[in-house]
Write a protein that binds this DNA or RNA. Structure first.
Lengths: 339, 339
DNA sequence: CTTTGTAAGGAAACCGCTATACTATTAAAG
DNA sequence: CTTTAATAGTATAGCGGTTTCCTTACAAAG
């Protein structure tokens, strides 16, 4: 039988109300009584039943982290977990707990998460990018559920999100290229429909142009966003002897970087001596590649922390209008570019 | 104001008890009444308040997943998340929820997790390997907390754990080597104190010996368990012209494999033509390496599923004595060995 | 001396659901 | 035609806190 608040009250010779007030730092309790109650708590090793508290207060101090999980998720999307760690860190610090909810295997993504809200077992939703369906978005707005999206959705502007400024990332890439003295740069991009890699590419071109460096169309290599596609595109462009070899190559993400690196290897071009290389987004094995690539990275952990923070501010201040916002990318200098 | 069970009772013209019984599939309710209640539930969009249920039932249907989190955890320990995904999958299937608890930043690892148990906000603990301190182990045993460790601890045998049979993994490695016709094999091992890599090594030697293939001491290369150490050890041994070059090389884990691969590259030995290679444990970028390595892998996701399953069986059957157990490794044939 | 105010603590309702014990009705058995 | 048993449903006491509203006691003000 666990110790309850009544046991403490008996032990201290006061009422339950008084114990509760001591626990919640009410002011109307004398120092002597407070001390007596605290002694009793110590003596009996009393710990409040959180379910009872949660039930009485009608609040859970629990947040759902909604995402798509499955076999090899950690491999395919390590960013997600790093963000989650950031979120978790912030929530813990603020005395919230985090419950993980998986969207895979659901009739519509977010079904279970909405249940958690409706059943009052969580106060809010933090949703990892692709886990937002239009249906979920609609229900969130309709029922006015506290939420933060990580990565902003294309279809719904009234939701609250946090995302990295990819265009700015592209500008950083341009800055770094110019700082290293590379003016003739090849940009390996995803599909034309791939928003992120295109934002990066546009930011890059814009900033280069600002610095009087026009990036011609033939220095943009669109691919099908696969490793193999990047390999083929890079190989074709670099193998074309009618054009001078670019000084550097930028890959819009790390999948493309792996394919590109393979092409460079086959063409016996060494990095950074023959050609420099810059990519976006770190990946687990990045540090194991030889040479270590320079990268414009997303500070994913920090993004998680921010998201957690926004969530709590929202909950503790429901009227506060919380705006969506973007975070800054960071340059991590490796061995593949030389200043 | 959310809909409560009383609202439903009024709507259906029955008592709360009856509604509750319908919800919990009691038998003593007539089909007609059941239908009426269900109509009312539909009509009012009633969803039971899980905190109230949890409180009344004195059970939480919630499990803590205890581990050490932090920046780059996903990178440094992707296995952990894959296990977590497995655990989560099984728990969800059985209508349990999973709460993540971090041991880093705690005065003793597991402090917070024990609080979750003591505050009755979780029914049990699933603990990822290194997150078990001796102090936590003691408290778990003392307070008889339902628990499963993933990876078995060195110091306490009374705890319940699940782990992969690493010795068997070593035997699998031997089998595969012999199946490919490699009899002269170099084994790159971690430190002598590294339990896992030594178990693998011992399993390997034993099985080789069983097949009349003695593995001499000079074919075991101990390292300091770093990439660099593996590189140096492999380089030294393979560069020693007084010995014949081994037909194949086994690395006791993927960190060692990366270092070893670098040594092979520098010695211009191609895989698998000049020398075959087999390693243990996949890693995110494994598939991106060239060639794709053959691997004796741990089925981590499945281990998570098993762990979740054990946990629930334990909770739903408290008297049942649940034994610790081991899971089987699996061979994933890549391009670095040839049958 | 009465009124007013305030500090300290207690009584009891309530949060929403479960589960036990009980009642009423009907059917089967003797 | 009773007695017994089974069926269908209800009343109510928790579960363990929080919180509102009171009661006292005593001091300060009028």
């Amino acid at each position: 039988m666990p110790v309850t608040i009544s046991d403490v009250a008996n032990e201290a010779g006061v009422s339950k109300s008084t114990v509760s007030k001591v626990l919640n730092h009410w002011t109307s309790i004398s120092p002597e009584t407070t001390a007596r109650v605290q002694d009793a708590i110590q003596k009996l090793h009393y710990i409040p039943n959180s379910r009872a508290v949660s039930f009485a207060r009608q609040t859970t101090q629990n947040i759902v982290y909604l995402t798509s999980l499955g076999k090899d998720t950690a491999y395919r999307n390590p960013h997600m977990f790093d963000i989650m760690c950031g979120v978790h860190h912030e929530l813990t610090r603020r005395n919230y707990t985090l419950t993980l909810v998986d969207t895979s295997e659901e009739s519509y993504p977010g079904e279970r998460a909405m249940q958690e809200i409706n059943r009052r077992s969580a106060d809010g939703l933090i949703i990892h990018g692709s886990a937002v369906s239009e249906e979920l978005a609609a229900r969130i707005l309709e029922e006015n559920v506290p939420h933060i999206l990580i990565g902003h959705p294309s279809f719904e502007t009234r939701l609250c999100w946090i995302d990295t400024d990819h265009t700015l990332g592209g500008e950083y890439a341009a800055d770094h290229m110019l700082a290293c003295g590379y003016t003739d740069v090849l940009f390996i991009c995803g599909k034309k429909s791939d928003t992120i890699s295109n934002q990066r590419m546009k930011g890059f071109r814009k900033k280069m142009l600002n610095q009087k460096q026009h990036v011609p169309q033939h220095r943009i290599g669109y691919t099908d966003a696969t490793r193999q596609g990047a390999y083929e595109t890079a190989f074709r462009i670099l193998n074309d002897r009618t054009l001078p070899r670019p000084q550097a190559i930028i890959c819009a993400n790390s999948t493309l970087a792996v394919g590109t690196a393979k092409a460079l290897r086959e063409l016996s071009l060494s990095i950074p001596d023959d050609i420099a290389m810059l990519t976006f987004d770190t990946y687990p094995y990045s540090g194991m590649l030889d040479p270590v690539l320079s990268v414009i990275d997303i500070n994913v952990y920090d993004m998680g922390v921010q998201a957690g923070n926004m969530m709590i501010r929202k909950l503790e201040n429901p009227d506060l209008f919380i705006q969506s916002f973007t975070t800054l990318p960071v340059l991590i200098q490796g061995e593949s570019t030389v200043l």
